[in-house]
């Protein structure tokens, strides 16, 4: 907004949006042609912050989209599916079976069935990272999940914490907002410090905010407070994983996988090398859903 007079409220609103920005994207597999496919399935993951749609043809990822979740789940699901199909030439009615997952899973109108995000994340991670994966950590906008799975991507142990904002994307957002730091800069800026500070001691996000305000007042730099919160968050996430234990190999999915301020610190605590993937880590849930759909159709259970 160059020039012109900004109303104070307007500026605040603008800034607020700025802090949450990340890029929406879609992708189509250049090696696949849907005309050759026997089974076409879709998985739609409507999360609290982002929604993804993945299209699978004969068990391989054909196309996907990753978008911001809007104000209601049905519309977010619709937008995600449209965006995934965009430019692929694949007509929607060619989809044999569609599964909804995520926090808004019961509100995915085009889904033939819904499956929990726990099951879908395990299945999706198994695909994205390969069958060696045994522990999947997913830090979402409003929850944190730790899952163990076997060589087939079947869940053997899990916990999900969606009661408390500490250790979730929301906790980080609250902090980014408090410190007026765009969320995508959190990682880099948290390492732009002279010495790693002690982590923020309060787990509770409400109390951590008060603590952070105190730190700023006593002269801490914004980046130092960010670093202190990132490491508190890493410790918090680790304490959740500890409950089910870590079995190698270890993979991280979800939006937080992209925040190295937290993840690098977490890896240091765990002293572990996470698995790598070429795929967008945020599509794990939707990919798992689409793959489940594929299996169901292949087994003849999934015809409408």
């Amino acid at each position: 907004m160059a020039g012109g007079i900004k109303m104070p409220g307007e500026e605040k609103k603008q800034q607020k949006q700025e802090f949450w920005r990340w890029t929406e994207s879609n992708w189509k597999n250049p090696d696949l042609d849907w005309n050759d496919a026997k089974i076409v399935t879709a998985g739609i993951d409507v999360g609290s912050v982002s929604s993804q749609a993945v299209i699978v043809t004969d068990g391989r990822i054909f196309a996907y989209s990753n978008m911001r979740t809007g104000s209601d789940s049905p519309e977010s699901a619709r937008n995600a599916l449209n965006y995934a199909l965009k430019g692929t030439g694949l007509p929607e009615d060619r989809i044999d079976y569609c599964i909804g997952t995520g926090y808004g899973r019961v509100n995915v109108p085009m889904a033939d069935r819904s499956i929990t995000e726990i099951a879908c994340h395990a299945r999706g991670a198994h695909f994205l990272y390969g069958p060696e994966v045994r522990t999947v950590l997913d830090v979402g906008g409003q929850d944190c999940k730790a899952i163990h799975c076997d060589g087939k991507g079947k869940v053997t142990d899990f916990l999900m914490n969606d009661k408390c904002a500490a250790g979730t994307g929301r906790g980080m957002e609250v902090f980014a907002d408090l410190l007026s730091v765009p969320i995508i800069e959190v990682g880099d800026r948290s390492f732009d410090i002279e010495k790693e500070p002690e982590p923020v001691s309060s787990t509770c996000v409400v109390y951590a905010k008060t603590e952070a305000t105190g730190l700023l007042r006593s002269g801490w730099k914004v980046n130092e407070v960010l670093a202190a919160y990132c490491s508190a968050m890493a410790e918090r996430i680790y304490s959740l994983i500890e409950r089910i234990g870590v079995e190698e190999r270890f993979a991280i999915t979800g939006g937080m996988a992209k925040n190295k301020g937290v993840i690098d610190r977490l890896m240091k605590i765990m002293n572990i090398e996470p698995m790598k993937t070429e795929w967008d880590t945020q599509i794990a849930g939707a990919a798992g859903a689409a793959l489940f759909a594929n299996t169901l159709v292949a087994k003849g259970k999934g015809r409408k």
């Binding site: 053997t156 142990d157 899990f158 914490n161 969606d162 509770c204 959740l240 409950r243 089910i244």
Partner: peptide, 16 residues
């Protein structure tokens, strides 16, 4: 499968 329902908040761990 071991299904852990519940949560951990600032005050402690509560899982069934």
């Amino acid at each position: 499968m071991k299904a852990n329902y519940g949560y951990k908040d600032g005050s402690g761990d509560y899982f069934i």
